[in-house]
């Protein structure tokens, strides 16, 4: 298997590139279709010969972790922009659109909570990353971690509840 940290670096670069390209196409800083991004970057890297067979599962896990950092990056930057007086340029549409669904605050909180969770149950963090940040299915998560999808579902529920507890939701 390729060296894990190197892969991560590569992957991060790859995903950032893709994400930037996506944003360039659109007009506003919006959240990304992470699932497609992950798959696409996987395929790119495979074609470029940067992955070996069997890396896919590991890849997905790493991709998810990377997605998390990318998303958090974006969210932080966006908040900074808004605070920095760019708020005026944000149209009504954007604000309302983005207030739908998951808020920036929530994302950052989840992120922080996951940091805490990492010291408690590493696997749960992976599962949250893969399901929530990368949008992978139960099946995909199961394959990636080498467990049954029933386990994934159970673990996911547990993770969720723990985060609920930690965040006081």
């Amino acid at each position: 298997m390729a060296n894990a940290p190197d892969l991560l670096t590569l992957l991060y670069a790859e995903l950032r590139k893709l994400a930037r390209a996506r944003l360039a196409a659109g007009a506003r800083p919006t959240l990304l279709d992470t699932h497609a991004l992950v798959h696409e970057s996987y395929l790119r890297m495979q074609r470029a010969g940067q992955l070996e067979l069997g890396d896919r599962e590991h890849f997905l896990a790493y991709a998810a972790a990377t997605m998390r950092s990318i998303v958090v990056d974006f969210v932080r930057r966006r908040r900074a922009q808004r605070r920095g007086g760019e708020a005026a340029r944000v149209t009504l549409d954007t604000e309302v659109a983005e207030s739908l669904g998951v808020s920036d605050e929530e994302i950052l909180e989840v992120h922080d909570a996951l940091e805490q969770l990492a010291g408690i149950d590493e696997r749960l963090v992976r599962i949250v990353e893969m399901r929530y940040f990368a949008g992978l299915s139960d099946q995909e998560v199961a394959e990636a971690l080498g467990i049954s999808d029933r386990t994934v579902r159970r673990d996911w529920e547990r993770a969720r509840l723990l985060l609920v507890g930690m965040l006081g939701r």
């Binding site: 959240l31 998303v71 739908l100 669904g101 998951v102 399901r131 949008g135 992978l136 969720r160 985060l163």
Partner: peptide
């Protein structure tokens, strides 16, 4: 909380889903 049907915190991934609003 886990039993409750109303709970949608972290239920869905960050992408592509019809959200409550």
């Amino acid at each position: 909380r886990g039993q409750s049907e109303d709970d949608d915190f972290l239920r869905r991934p960050l992408t592509s889903s019809p959200l409550a609003a």
